[in-house]
């Protein structure tokens, strides 16, 4: 069993705001992250897959194909976007880094071939804050 990780990045705006709460409660819970006019981040996305090495290629999975899957299903939908407004798979969800990592997992998993398992989605919101999701 080997683990293979690919790093991509995207830049996006978002806000942490629960529409079922008052503005005051949102500010009490989310502080400056609730700014109604948005703020933004440079997100760094690490996707780790695991499986056995193909003896013919020496690859677990062609990393160019992994990069392409991340680009089509994740980065093109998120890069230079407003996460709350512009992203179909985040509509109706709270745009926390936790929820975004989980949603990225769901975007990628159906596209991996048999024998290649998604192991971890690690998402940095800032150089000092990141979340990891392992699919359970």
């Amino acid at each position: 069993m080997v683990y293979l990780t690919r790093l991509e990045h995207f830049n996006a705006a978002h806000k942490l705001y629960n529409p079922n709460w008052s503005k005051e409660k949102n500010e009490a819970v989310f502080g400056i992250c609730a700014n109604e006019n948005w703020h933004g981040h440079n997100f760094e996305l690490f996707v780790t897959i695991k499986g056995e090495v193909d003896p013919d290629t020496g690859f677990l999975f062609d990393v160019k194909k992994l990069s392409e899957l991340m680009r089509i299903h994740v980065v093109e939908k998120l890069d230079h976007k407003n996460l709350n407004m512009d992203v179909d798979f985040m509509l109706g969800k709270m745009c926390s880094t936790e929820n975004l990592a989980t949603a990225i997992w769901q975007q990628l998993e159906p596209h991996l071939p048999a024998g290649v398992q998604l192991h971890c989605v690690k998402l940095y919101e800032t150089p000092r804050i990141y979340v990891e999701y392992f699919g359970n």
Partner: peptide, 12 residues
């Protein structure tokens, strides 16, 4: 280009 997105994007 994409930096003109009317609903904004953002950076650290």
């Amino acid at each position: 280009g994409k930096c003109n997105n009317p609903s904004y994007h953002g950076h650290n």
